[in-house]
C-alpha cells in the first residue's frame, strides 16, 4: 500500500505543493473557523452541547466546502487544473483531505472534550465561578457521535455535488442538496430506531451516516475521475456571484434556525433535567421523612 513515506521525493514534493496551494487558497477561512472553534469551546465554553457542534460543522459546510470543492468551476480553471501533472484524482483527494481533516479535527476533538468535560476541568484549575462550574455530560451519548457524523455526512454530500457540478449555480446550492439528503436520512433512521427500540438509540443512525459518507465520497471520487472539464467561461460573473451570495445567505439563515432549534431543545432539556433532579431530591426527602412518620407514639 502506498503511503506518504513510500512515495518518491518528487511525488512528496508534488503532494505537498498541492496541499499547500489548497491551504493557501482557503487558509484564512480555515483559520477563522479554527479561532471561532477554540474560543467557543475552550475559552468561553459556549459550545456546551453536541447540537452546537453539529451547527458549527454545518456552518463550515455551507461557507467553505462549496467554494473549496467547486473552486475550479467558480473560477473557470477546470481545464487548467485537469491538465496539470497531478491529475484530477490528486486534486480531489487533496481538497477532500484538507476539508475532512479540518472538520473531523474540530468536531471530533470538540465532541471528546465535551464528553469528558475537559475545558471546564481545565478552567477550574485556574478559577472557579459560575461559568466554570462543571457541566454534567449530556445524555444520550450517541449525540457525541452524531456531532461528528452529521457534519461529516453533510460535508461529503456537499463536497461531491460541488465537485461534480456542471454550473456555478449547482456549486452554490450544493450544501442545500446535501442537507436535504442528510436530513431525510437521519430522520428516517431515527424513526426506524424508534419503531424497533421504542426510542432512538442512535447507533443505526451513526452507522448509516458513516457508511453513507464513505460511499458518497468514494462514488464522488470515481465520478470525478471521469468528469469532463468545463470549458472556459471565466470566473464567476455578476449573475453567478449573486446566486452564490444568495445561496450562502440562505445557508446562514438555515444555520441560524438550526442554532435556534438547538438552543430551544437544549433549554427544554436543561429544564427537564432540573425537574428530574428536583423530583429525585423530593423522593429522597420523602424517604428520609418516612421512618420518622412511622414512629408514631
Amino acid at each position: 500500500m502506498t503511503t506518504f513515506s513510500t512515495l518518491t521525493d518528487a511525488d512528496r514534493r508534488v503532494w505537498t505543493a498541492l496541499a499547500l496551494r489548497q491551504w493557501v487558497a482557503f487558509g484564512s477561512l480555515h483559520i477563522g473557523f479554527l479561532v471561532a472553534w477554540l474560543v467557543a469551546l475552550w475559552v468561553l465554553q459556549l459550545v456546551a452541547h453536541p447540537g452546537w457542534l453539529i451547527a458549527f460543522g454545518l456552518l463550515y459546510t455551507v461557507l467553505v466546502t462549496p467554494g473549496m470543492a467547486g473552486a475550479d468551476i467558480m473560477d473557470g480553471t477546470e481545464e487548467f487544473s485537469f491538465a496539470l501533472p497531478p491529475g484530477r484524482r490528486a486534486i480531489f483527494l487533496t481538497r477532500m483531505g484538507i476539508g475532512l481533516a479540518f472538520l473531523l479535527l474540530t468536531t471530533g476533538l470538540g465532541s471528546l472534550a465535551m464528553a469528558f468535560d475537559v475545558p471546564q476541568a481545565l478552567w477550574s484549575l485556574v478559577a472557579t465561578s459560575g461559568i466554570t462550574e462543571p457541566n454534567r455530560p449530556v445524555t444520550p451519548s450517541f449525540l457525541y457521535a452524531l456531532a461528528v457524523l452529521v457534519p461529516a455526512a453533510a460535508f461529503a454530500g456537499t463536497f461531491v455535488v460541488a465537485s461534480l457540478a456542471g454550473t456555478r449555480t449547482i456549486v452554490g446550492v450544493s450544501w442545500g442538496i446535501a442537507f436535504v439528503a442528510v436530513g431525510i436520512g437521519v430522520f428516517a433512521s431515527l424513526q426506524v430506531e424508534s419503531l424497533i427500540w421504542d426510542k432512538p438509540i442512535g447507533w443505526m443512525t451513526c452507522v448509516m451516516l458513516l457508511l453513507g459518507s464513505v460511499l458518497t465520497l468514494l462514488a464522488g471520487f470515481l465520478a470525478y475521475d471521469q468528469k469532463e472539464a468545463l470549458i472556459g467561461g471565466g470566473r464567476a460573473g455578476a449573475r453567478s456571484g449573486t446566486i452564490a451570495v444568495v445561496a450562502i445567505a440562505i445557508g446562514i439563515t438555515v444555520f441560524a434556525l438550526a442554532m435556534f432549534v438547538v438552543s430551544v431543545s437544549y433549554q427544554s432539556m436543561t429544564v427537564r433535567e432540573v425537574r428530574d433532579q428536583s423530583m429525585t431530591v423530593r423522593e429522597v426527602d420523602a424517604l428520609r421523612v418516612t421512618p420518622l412518620e412511622t414512629v408514631d407514639p
Binding site: T16, A17, R21, T77, I231, R235
Partner: peptide, 29 residues
C-alpha cells in the same frame, strides 16, 4: 503527464494568484 503541457483557447488561470506564485507552484509540479 509532466512531459505534456497545454494552453487552452479559453483557459483561465487562478485569478487570485500572482504569476510569481504560479511559477513557484509549477516549479514543484
Amino acid at each position: 503527464r509532466q512531459r505534456v503541457t497545454y494552453v487552452s483557447q479559453e483557459q483561465q488561470l487562478p485569478w487570485r494568484m500572482t504569476a510569481d506564485e504560479l511559477m513557484a507552484y509549477f516549479s514543484q509540479l
